[in-house]
Design a protein around this nucleic acid. Structure first.
Lengths: 187, 187
DNA sequence: TATTCATTTCATTTTGAATTGAAATCTCCA
DNA sequence: TGGAGATTTCAATTCAAAATGAAATGAATA
């Protein structure tokens, strides 16, 4: 099965259910679901662009296009993904504060809505993906610098320059992150 | 075999070749090669952070830490990768203008050096990876907006707002890219 | 407490991307 | 032109990450 975003919907709005099914583009009879799946696809691509599993994006996209909260079961059946994927994906999205769980009183299920702000998303990505990796690389660069000792003088000079160049890149990237956050995080 | 960055070197600086081999950390007897492999590892991580095959980064890192140009054969044996991977990786790096091929007169082999500037790298990444994807998403969003017609009025209102919100993000990201390029691209 | 449905967990499976390696092709020199 | 590398190509393989699904756990009602 293609990793989510494939159409499988059949619930909600029982009328006009089993009409003519054209071979391809049989997408969904319900225009709302159609838009939801479209949005799921868009966010799936975005997610994997940023190095996340695309199911994360699908789920967020579906919720983003849902006027009212959805339960995990609804998510599973609309996206055609497994409960395992849905459970883990929702957990992560809640951690990222991209999605809010709602436990209504007198209800057994938890329902979820997408937060419409970009900031938490971007922030989490920068803090959890980029910064740690940049930090690790910086450390490794520093330790390489200490290994310069055993080199022939000419090589030593050349490599010292290059390592410092790479270090400068890293620092620059690090100072740049807060700027990105501020810029993207106003809405 | 772990995807490159594993030690396998045995050429260059023939002296002190087969000394005592401690079980782990048998890395490399030659301090230059050691630094080169370290740099290869750092750039391998960076590459896959940006969604490129890590072999690309390994090769670039090795060249970045090489005072003089290396042939494909030398790259293959130092990184322990296949000729196929090396060939394709070098081709891509040359396309990205991250690496310069040098065909010396009276020599049969092509040798390669790393460009030490960051700009072409960043530029290529932004232009080839980010911009096209953002553009595609924008188009898809636009076409979703047209599908709003068939919705109940209340849903329609809510979704129109959300789609425009997502579109705004995209535009913001697009206007932001040139700024990044300028900022990172001075060196 | 027993029961039912929702959710989580995790060993297994799938899948797509990266890598391999060997054959085909190319290039240069004799 | 022939031959010896150097390089490219690409079908087959490998591998890591993601997804599955079923059993275990959890939560709420009756």
């Amino acid at each position: 099965m293609p990793p989510a975003s494939s159409a499988k919907a059949s619930h909600e709005t029982p009328g006009s259910a089993s009409g003519s099914r054209s071979p391809r583009a049989a997408a969904s009879p319900d225009p709302l679901v159609e838009i939801q799946l479209g949005m799921a696809g868009i966010f799936a691509d975005l997610a994997d662009l940023l190095g996340n599993p695309s199911s994360l994006g699908s789920i967020y996209g579906l919720l983003f296009a849902s006027p009212n909260p959805l339960s995990m079961e609804e998510i599973v059946e609309r996206l055609g993904i497994s409960t395992g994927t849905a459970s883990q994906g929702l957990r992560r999205l809640v951690e990222l504060e991209a999605v809010t769980p709602i436990k209504a009183e007198g209800e057994r299920v938890t329902r979820y809505t997408a937060k419409l702000e970009l900031r938490p998303f971007v922030s989490a990505f920068l803090n959890q993906q980029l910064l740690p990796r940049l930090g690790k690389s910086s450390d490794r660069l520093a330790s390489l610098e200490e290994a310069l000792g055993g080199l022939e003088p000419s090589d030593q000079e050349a490599l010292r320059f290059r390592i410092s160049r790479a270090t400068k890149w890293h620092n620059r990237a690090k100072t740049f992150l807060p700027i990105i956050r501020r810029f993207l995080g106003s809405t």
